[in-house]
Simulated assay, not measured.
Amino acid sequence: MSLTITQVKQLLQAPTVSPETLAQLAQDERKGVQQALKSFTKQQEKLAAKKAAFLARLSFERDLRQHGYQAIAGIDEVGRGPLAGPVVAAAVILPVDCDLLEVNDSKQLSLKKREELFTKIQAEALAIGIGIQDQDVIDRVNIYQATKLAMMEAVEKLAIPADYLLLDAMKLDLPLPQTSLIKGDARSVSIAAASIIAKVTRDHLMADYDKLYPGYGFAHNAGYGTAEHLAGLAAEGITPIHRKTFAPVKEYL
């Protein structure tokens, strides 16, 4: 007895479908079966493209492993531009067989997807280090130097010592071989993983600050100079987490 359309759809949702089964379904002239098969084929094409893109984003890591490096840390930061809050950096060492197809530049991902991948990266990573430099450090040494300090702190906090660093458009004063990649968070899975860890970590921090300092929208704007944030500055003045060397914050001192 032939399968019902519902059974065919369930069959095509299995983790693997044999070529023999697909060939049999291709001979089934029912419109519902052909539509299900067409949908399945499109999904497989999308998955194949996603896997190819993932492998391309692993090219730097693969090449470095062929040259003997094992603990390759991707490093990225978030929080250079906000008017308030810290700059946060993350360093992530991934295993050779990581299964992180959807890990990409955190700016290209939705809030929900970043949260999902944040958990998945934590489960799969061999080591994660996080560096945080607050507004006082930023005001004292400038945002660029504070970013470097946060990145170096993240590297130092790795449970497994890194033997190579992949960074997003940055070089660190550390005695480790390293490569700086322009738009690295879109070109390297390790850097992309670090960008997600840094972004979600900072967003959580800013959500906590929103409870301490309501009226600025920190939970929504992460400290960036949105209309809500600027209105809060005008109405309430600056908070202890504002960067006093950043305009327009310094205008309210």
Rank of each mutant, 00 (worst) to 15 (best):
S59Y: 00
S59P: 00
S59F: 00
R62W: 05
L64C: 07
Q66N: 15
Q66Y: 04
H67I: 00
Q70W: 00
I72V: 13
G81S: 04
A84G: 02
V88F: 12
A90D: 12
A90V: 07
A91P: 07
I93M: 01
I93R: 03
I93C: 03
I93V: 14
L94H: 04
P95S: 12
P95E: 10
C98G: 01
D99K: 15
D99F: 06
L101Q: 13
N104Q: 10
N104S: 14
S106R: 10
S106H: 10
K107D: 07
K107H: 09
L109M: 12
S110C: 02
R114C: 03
L117W: 08
F118Q: 11
T119N: 14
K120M: 14
I121K: 11
Q122D: 01
A125G: 12
A125L: 11
A127T: 09
A127Q: 08
A127C: 12
G131S: 09
Q133W: 01
D134E: 08
D136G: 02
D139A: 04
R140A: 15
V141H: 02
V141M: 04
N142Q: 02
N142H: 04
I143S: 05
I143F: 01
I143K: 06
Q145G: 00
A146C: 04
L149S: 01
M151I: 00
A154F: 08
K157M: 07
A159R: 11
A159D: 13
I160M: 11
P161G: 05
A162C: 07
L165I: 09
L166I: 11
D168S: 01
K171F: 12
Q178R: 09
S180P: 05
L181T: 01
I182S: 04
G184E: 08
R187K: 15
S188H: 07
I191P: 06
I191S: 11
A192D: 06
